[in-house]
Protein backbone atom coordinates (compact mmCIF):
# COMPACT_ATOMS: atom_id res chain seq x y z
CA UNK A 1 0.00 0.00 0.00
CA UNK A 2 1.57 3.25 -1.14
CA UNK A 3 1.27 6.31 1.08
CA UNK A 4 0.65 9.67 -0.63
CA UNK A 5 2.20 12.69 1.06
CA UNK A 6 1.96 16.42 0.46
CA UNK A 7 4.62 17.36 3.00
CA UNK A 8 8.21 16.32 2.12
CA UNK A 9 9.11 16.06 5.81
CA UNK A 10 6.41 13.43 6.36
CA UNK A 11 7.55 11.58 3.25
CA UNK A 12 11.08 11.02 4.58
CA UNK A 13 10.16 10.27 8.21
CA UNK A 14 11.95 7.36 9.86
CA UNK A 15 15.20 7.20 7.87
CA UNK A 16 17.85 5.88 10.28
CA UNK A 17 21.43 6.92 10.86
CA UNK A 18 23.85 4.69 8.97
CA UNK A 19 21.38 3.97 6.14
CA UNK A 20 22.40 3.31 2.55
CA UNK A 21 20.40 5.82 0.50
CA UNK A 22 20.01 5.44 -3.28
CA UNK A 23 19.43 8.85 -4.85
CA UNK A 24 18.20 9.03 -8.45
CA UNK A 25 19.17 11.54 -11.08
CA UNK A 26 21.84 12.13 -13.66
CA UNK A 27 23.14 15.56 -12.80
CA UNK A 28 19.92 17.44 -12.05
CA UNK A 29 17.69 15.45 -14.48
CA UNK A 30 15.58 13.19 -12.28
CA UNK A 31 17.21 14.41 -9.07
CA UNK A 32 14.60 14.25 -6.25
CA UNK A 33 15.58 17.65 -4.88
CA UNK A 34 12.65 18.13 -2.49
CA UNK A 35 13.18 14.69 -0.92
CA UNK A 36 16.91 15.31 -0.48
CA UNK A 37 16.21 18.71 1.11
CA UNK A 38 13.74 17.00 3.46
CA UNK A 39 16.37 14.36 4.31
CA UNK A 40 18.73 17.17 5.33
CA UNK A 41 16.06 18.55 7.69
CA UNK A 42 15.22 15.05 8.93
CA UNK A 43 18.78 14.76 10.21
CA UNK A 44 19.85 11.17 9.46
CA UNK A 45 23.63 10.98 9.40
CA UNK A 46 26.53 8.57 8.79
CA UNK A 47 24.85 7.76 5.46
CA UNK A 48 26.20 5.84 2.48
CA UNK A 49 24.82 7.53 -0.62
CA UNK A 50 24.62 5.86 -4.02
CA UNK A 51 24.13 8.33 -6.85
CA UNK A 52 25.63 8.67 -10.32
CA UNK A 53 27.22 11.98 -9.41
CA UNK A 54 28.40 13.52 -6.16
CA UNK A 55 26.30 16.65 -6.08
CA UNK A 56 26.05 19.80 -8.19
CA UNK A 57 26.46 23.35 -6.94
CA UNK A 58 25.36 23.95 -3.36
CA UNK A 59 21.85 22.45 -3.33
CA UNK A 60 20.31 18.98 -3.11
CA UNK A 61 22.89 16.22 -2.67
CA UNK A 62 25.68 18.82 -2.45
CA UNK A 63 23.89 20.39 0.54
CA UNK A 64 23.52 16.95 2.18
CA UNK A 65 27.26 16.43 1.75
CA UNK A 66 28.04 19.93 3.04
CA UNK A 67 25.94 19.19 6.15
CA UNK A 68 28.38 16.37 6.96
CA UNK A 69 25.76 13.61 6.82
CA UNK A 70 27.46 11.34 4.32
CA UNK A 71 30.21 8.92 5.32
CA UNK A 72 30.65 7.31 1.91
CA UNK A 73 29.69 8.04 -1.72
CA UNK A 74 29.28 5.26 -4.26
CA UNK A 75 29.11 6.80 -7.72
CA UNK A 76 30.43 6.65 -11.27
CA UNK A 77 31.34 10.27 -11.87
CA UNK A 78 31.97 12.43 -8.80
CA UNK A 79 34.17 15.00 -10.54
CA UNK A 80 32.21 17.69 -12.36
CA UNK A 81 32.68 21.39 -13.00
CA UNK A 82 30.27 22.21 -10.15
CA UNK A 83 31.11 19.45 -7.64
CA UNK A 84 33.17 21.70 -5.37
CA UNK A 85 31.43 20.51 -2.18
CA UNK A 86 32.38 16.87 -2.77
CA UNK A 87 35.85 17.83 -4.04
CA UNK A 88 36.60 19.73 -0.83
CA UNK A 89 35.41 16.91 1.45
CA UNK A 90 37.34 14.30 -0.55
CA UNK A 91 40.58 16.26 -0.54
CA UNK A 92 40.19 16.88 3.20
CA UNK A 93 39.81 13.11 3.74
CA UNK A 94 36.33 13.61 5.19
CA UNK A 95 34.45 11.29 2.83
CA UNK A 96 35.02 7.81 1.46
CA UNK A 97 34.59 7.22 -2.29
CA UNK A 98 33.85 4.05 -4.25
CA UNK A 99 33.97 4.65 -8.00
CA UNK A 100 31.92 2.16 -10.04
CA UNK A 101 31.48 2.14 -13.83
CA UNK A 102 28.07 3.61 -14.61
CA UNK A 103 26.60 0.47 -16.15
CA UNK A 104 27.95 -1.71 -13.37
CA UNK A 105 26.46 0.68 -10.82
CA UNK A 106 23.04 0.29 -12.45
CA UNK A 107 23.38 -3.48 -12.80
CA UNK A 108 24.49 -3.96 -9.18
CA UNK A 109 21.28 -2.24 -8.08
CA UNK A 110 19.23 -4.18 -10.62
CA UNK A 111 20.73 -7.37 -9.18
CA UNK A 112 19.76 -6.31 -5.65
CA UNK A 113 16.19 -5.66 -6.76
CA UNK A 114 16.01 -8.91 -8.71
CA UNK A 115 17.39 -11.19 -6.00
CA UNK A 116 20.64 -12.00 -7.79
CA UNK A 117 23.50 -12.93 -5.46
CA UNK A 118 26.32 -11.62 -7.69
CA UNK A 119 27.12 -11.54 -11.40
CA UNK A 120 30.10 -11.74 -13.76
CA UNK A 121 30.54 -8.50 -15.71
CA UNK A 122 33.06 -7.80 -18.51
CA UNK A 123 33.34 -4.09 -17.70
CA UNK A 124 36.58 -3.07 -16.01
CA UNK A 125 38.56 -6.26 -16.64
CA UNK A 126 42.28 -5.46 -16.50
CA UNK A 127 41.71 -1.98 -15.03
CA UNK A 128 42.33 -0.61 -11.53
CA UNK A 129 38.60 -0.89 -10.78
CA UNK A 130 38.89 -4.70 -10.96
CA UNK A 131 41.77 -4.84 -8.49
CA UNK A 132 41.15 -7.42 -5.78
CA UNK A 133 37.99 -8.74 -7.43
CA UNK A 134 37.43 -12.34 -8.43
CA UNK A 135 37.69 -12.89 -12.20
CA UNK A 136 36.57 -15.75 -14.38
CA UNK A 137 36.91 -16.66 -18.05
CA UNK A 138 33.64 -17.77 -19.63
CA UNK A 139 33.62 -18.84 -23.29
CA UNK A 140 36.99 -17.17 -23.80
CA UNK A 141 35.97 -13.81 -22.38
CA UNK A 142 37.12 -12.42 -19.02
CA UNK A 143 34.65 -11.19 -16.41
CA UNK A 144 34.80 -9.58 -12.97
CA UNK A 145 32.54 -10.72 -10.12
CA UNK A 146 30.30 -7.87 -8.98
CA UNK A 147 28.01 -7.85 -5.95
CA UNK A 148 24.58 -6.24 -5.58
CA UNK A 149 24.07 -2.82 -4.01
CA UNK A 150 20.99 -2.90 -1.80
CA UNK A 151 19.54 0.31 -0.42
CA UNK A 152 17.77 0.85 2.87
CA UNK A 153 16.05 3.78 1.20
CA UNK A 154 15.65 4.97 -2.41
CA UNK A 155 14.77 8.58 -3.22
CA UNK A 156 13.50 8.78 -6.78
CA UNK A 157 12.28 11.61 -9.01
CA UNK A 158 9.41 10.58 -11.33
CA UNK A 159 6.88 12.57 -13.38
CA UNK A 160 3.40 11.26 -12.54
CA UNK A 161 2.29 8.76 -9.92
CA UNK A 162 -1.13 7.27 -9.29
CA UNK A 163 -2.78 6.57 -5.96
CA UNK A 164 -1.99 2.88 -6.37
CA UNK A 165 1.75 3.73 -6.44
CA UNK A 166 2.56 3.31 -10.14
CA UNK A 167 5.06 5.71 -11.68
CA UNK A 168 5.86 7.13 -15.08
CA UNK A 169 8.91 9.23 -15.83
CA UNK A 170 9.75 11.98 -18.28
CA UNK A 171 12.43 11.78 -20.98
CA UNK A 172 16.02 11.27 -19.74
CA UNK A 173 14.97 12.09 -16.15
CA UNK A 174 14.03 8.39 -15.97
CA UNK A 175 17.72 7.34 -15.70
CA UNK A 176 18.33 5.54 -12.37
CA UNK A 177 14.78 5.86 -10.96
CA UNK A 178 13.25 2.56 -12.09
CA UNK A 179 16.29 0.53 -11.02
CA UNK A 180 16.72 2.22 -7.64
CA UNK A 181 13.00 1.82 -6.92
CA UNK A 182 13.44 -1.96 -7.05
CA UNK A 183 16.62 -2.06 -4.97
CA UNK A 184 15.63 -0.49 -1.64
CA UNK A 185 13.66 -1.61 1.38
CA UNK A 186 11.85 1.76 1.48
CA UNK A 187 11.24 3.52 -1.86
CA UNK A 188 10.09 7.12 -1.77
CA UNK A 189 9.24 8.86 -5.06
CA UNK A 190 8.54 12.52 -5.64
CA UNK A 191 6.23 13.26 -8.58
CA UNK A 192 4.98 16.39 -10.25
CA UNK A 193 1.40 15.15 -10.04
CA UNK A 194 -0.63 12.33 -8.48
CA UNK A 195 -3.63 10.98 -10.41
CA UNK A 196 -6.37 8.53 -9.46
CA UNK A 197 -5.74 4.81 -9.89
CA UNK A 198 -6.79 3.92 -13.43
CA UNK A 199 -5.77 7.21 -14.98
CA UNK A 200 -2.32 5.94 -15.98
CA UNK A 201 -2.48 3.53 -18.91
CA UNK A 202 -1.29 0.21 -17.40
CA UNK A 203 0.63 -0.45 -20.64
CA UNK A 204 2.80 2.59 -20.03
CA UNK A 205 3.57 2.19 -16.33
CA UNK A 206 7.36 2.09 -15.90
CA UNK A 207 7.66 1.43 -12.17
CA UNK A 208 4.83 -0.83 -10.92
CA UNK A 209 3.31 0.00 -7.53
CA UNK A 210 4.85 -3.00 -5.78
CA UNK A 211 8.17 -1.14 -5.63
CA UNK A 212 6.84 2.17 -4.32
CA UNK A 213 6.16 2.73 -0.61
CA UNK A 214 5.60 6.48 -0.46
CA UNK A 215 4.85 9.20 -3.00
CA UNK A 216 5.45 12.90 -2.40
CA UNK A 217 2.99 14.89 -4.52
CA UNK A 218 4.68 18.14 -5.53
CA UNK A 219 1.57 19.29 -7.40
CA UNK A 220 3.71 21.03 -9.99
CA UNK A 221 2.54 19.16 -13.09
CA UNK A 222 1.37 22.28 -14.90
CA UNK A 223 4.75 23.92 -14.49
CA UNK A 224 6.58 20.80 -15.63
CA UNK A 225 4.41 19.68 -18.54
Amino acid sequence: MTGIFADPDDAVAGISDGSTVLIGGFGMAGMPVQLVDALIRQGATDLTVVCNNAGNGDTGLAALLAAGRVRKMICSFPRQSDSWVFDGLYRAGKIELEVVPQGTLAERMRAAGAGIGAFYCPTGVGTPLADGKETRTIDGRDYVLEYPIKGDVALVGAHVGDRAGNLVYRKTARNFGPVMATAATLTIAQVNRVVEAGELDPETVVTPSIYVDRILDLGTAEAAS
Binding site: S76, F77, R79, Y90, L97, V100, P101, Q102, P122, L129
Partner: peptide, 12 residues
Protein backbone atom coordinates in the same frame (compact mmCIF):
# COMPACT_ATOMS: atom_id res chain seq x y z
CA UNK B 1 39.56 12.54 -8.04
CA UNK B 2 38.79 9.36 -9.99
CA UNK B 3 35.65 9.57 -12.15
CA UNK B 4 34.85 6.91 -14.75
CA UNK B 5 31.22 7.45 -15.79
CA UNK B 6 30.31 5.14 -18.68
CA UNK B 7 33.79 5.05 -20.26
CA UNK B 8 34.62 1.47 -19.26
CA UNK B 9 31.16 0.18 -20.18
CA UNK B 10 31.44 1.77 -23.63
CA UNK B 11 34.98 0.57 -24.25
CA UNK B 12 34.03 -2.99 -23.27
Amino acid sequence: IPAVGGAMDLAT
